[in-house]
Design a protein around this nucleic acid. Sequence first.
DNA 1: GAGATAAAAGATAAAAATATCGTTTATTAA
DNA 2: TTAATAAACGATATTTTTATCTTTTATCTC
Lengths: 145, 145
Amino acid sequence: MAIFSKTCEYALRAVFYVAQRSHEGYKVGIKEIAEQINSPEPFLAKILQRLRKEGLIQSVKGPSGGFYFDAASLNRPLADIVTAVDGDAIFTGCGLGLTDCSESNPCPLHEDFKKVRNQITSMLNHTPIGKFNLGLIKGKFSLNK
Amino acid sequence: MAIFSKTCEYALRAVFYVAQRSHEGYKVGIKEIAEQINSPEPFLAKILQRLRKEGLIQSVKGPSGGFYFDAASLNRPLADIVTAVDGDAIFTGCGLGLTDCSESNPCPLHEDFKKVRNQITSMLNHTPIGKFNLGLIKGKFSLNK
DNA sequence: GAGATAAAAGATAAAAATATCGTTTATTAA
DNA sequence: TTAATAAACGATATTTTTATCTTTTATCTC
């Protein structure tokens, strides 16, 4: 089990790649994205369609078209992407899968998981999509293996 | 997406319930466990079979049989249960799903996820199966909704 | 030892997540 | 205004996870 679904992992990797290229002034085609982040192209296309419908990423059709982020979108937090793809289970869900777990009706791991969730939530809320652009351009980070 | 698979959530809830009952001196039948933790009985049976094969839980067949933990097993860490069911992805996997992510070839979120993973790992390694027995007996914790 | 009980095992089934394909629509550039 | 390009859309396929059912085996009680 991972923190995010496979779908969300692809989404985040794609987001980082498109953000980097947007920072450099380019739009990117789905084929290039899929190659660069090592994901199945048609599946990734579906994911980006969803993000686009939610207004989280921009795209234009036709020659010299592709996906990109405008300035405002580059500043959105990663949490928006995660929520769009995986919902808010990672932010609010019980670690043991209970539906009514809460302060007043806690599972045994409630306090422990609260810390973990808070850390993940804080990280995703405070990390803008474009945060790693310079690092990616400098080749400091990997997105493909 | 959750931290653990549904299978693992059931496993942990069942483990807590059986641990509590073992502490009280009882063995528990699969039917009672499934009822008390609100899980599908035959599915849970498969899960407990796996744990039993790995020696993480004990069981006896026949009348007045059922599942239980011996003293040594009650002191094992939750990490053993999680590893048996979900493998070690939660402890070692890359947050973005990369296979070769490491200190020398990091994904953009590598440092952030290291903190999250370390916290989860530490928690699961330092929490023995029997830790919540008294709290459960006193009704302080919920396992069923 | 016979009958009852409860877990183990094996074969399936259903649902959800992941992945693919063919066609359509929008946009651009010539 | 046409040809080429690239995303959008809709239908379908595959794989994995989750769940069920039936039969078998072990153990206890009498």
